[in-house]
């Protein structure tokens, strides 16, 4: 069996693909790559199909050694890459020989990098996905974050070289003083105090270090709703949840499937990806958009991505 051993696993590395569909009603998070564009880019480079998984690495610091020669590519947050002691570029296919070591340093910007190995990772899919949902202990190698010395099985079906693609140049990391998160107002938009909604729309917030695959907590003028809890209902990706302490949390891929806090709206998927790659300290602002604008943005970005992947 071909394998990849993680001599150093990094602080929060997980096996991720596009995530699960249709498990929310069972209380199981969708999971999936926090930066789906970076996932797609790597799949494209190696000729992988859209269901192939990669290792999602938060803040780099990974060292890996394969049992057999393999092709690989690293996408997402740009980090220094070394094969043994030789520096190699990101987003470019590299050959790692059996026993050689790939080192992924800390990224210079962004958070999530993706290590794709030709043939993919051959772990057991759960509900048609290899994505790890650590809270539920589902998917990935053993249901949790990858640990030092873990050995991950590699797939046998490495695609031939003529299916390799050029780097599509997709990037979700933005260097901006203020990152704008467009959101679709929800039903509580009209029920919460107008002054609170005005603060949400006009003030600046900051990404805090309380940020992970479940949600990203923001810091700013406290949004005191005076609401402790509501009747539980389904949460959606990007939901801006406001707990009693007034610091909004934008719910991400591993969110709890039900929630009972006020939610004035939900950040559109494409801006969730930018937020996922934003580091603590990044200033953000919210901008309400209509559902129709959100649909238009989704179509435009879909076509853009499709064009780049051609």
């Amino acid at each position: 069996m071909r394998t990849l051993t993680l001599d150093k696993a990094g602080i929060a590395s997980t096996i991720q693909d596009g995530g699960r569909l249709g498990t929310l009603h069972a209380g199981i998070a969708a999971a999936g790559a926090m930066d789906p564009l970076a996932l797609k880019a790597g799949q494209h480079c190696l000729g992988h199909h859209a269901g192939e998984a990669a290792i999602e690495i938060a803040y780099g610091n990974v060292r890996a050694t394969p049992s057999h020669d393999c092709a690989l590519v690293v996408t997402g947050a740009p980090a220094m890459l070394l094969i043994d002691n030789e520096s190699v570029p990101m987003r470019s296919i590299q050959t790692l020989s059996a026993g050689q070591t790939l080192t992924i340093g800390p990224p210079s910007e962004g958070i999530y990098s993706y290590l794709h190995v030709s043939g993919g990772f051959d772990t057991q899919p759960i509900f048609n996905s290899r994505s790890t949902a650590p809270r539920e202990g589902i998917g990935g190698l053993h249901g949790g974050y990858l640990r030092d010395q873990d050995t991950v099985p590699l797939g046998d079906g490495a695609p031939p070289i003529d299916t390799y693609g050029a780097d599509p140049g997709l990037c979700s990391i933005e260097q901006r003083a203020v990152l704008t998160l467009r959101y679709v107002p929800g039903y509580q938009y009209d029920e919460l105090a107008p002054a609170l909604i005005q603060r949400l729309n006009e003030d600046h917030f900051e990404v805090t270090s309380k940020a992970n695959r479940m949600g990203i907590t923001l810091n700013g003028p406290p949004l005191k709703t005076g609401v402790e809890s509501l009747l539980s209902e389904a949460t959606c990706q990007g939901a801006i949840q406001i707990p009693p302490d007034g610091n909004p949390i934008v719910l991400m891929k591993d969110r709890q499937t039900m929630g009972g806090y006020p939610i004035p709206g939900a950040v559109i998927e494409s801006d969730c990806v930018r937020l996922a790659q934003a580091r603590p300290g990044q200033t953000i602002r919210f901008a309400a958009c209509t559902p129709q604008e959100a649909d238009n943005i989704r179509w435009l970005e879909h076509h853009y991505v499709e064009t780049r992947l051609r």
Binding site: L21, G22, T23, L24, H25, L231, S232, E233, A234, C236, T257, M258, E269, R298, W299, H302
Partner: peptide
């Protein structure tokens, strides 16, 4: 329809993208 979730007084319908 990719998923649907019943809450105490709500039904949320999740659609596949696009």
């Amino acid at each position: 329809l990719s998923d649907s979730v019943v809450g105490y007084a709500t039904l949320t319908l999740f659609f596949t993208p696009l």
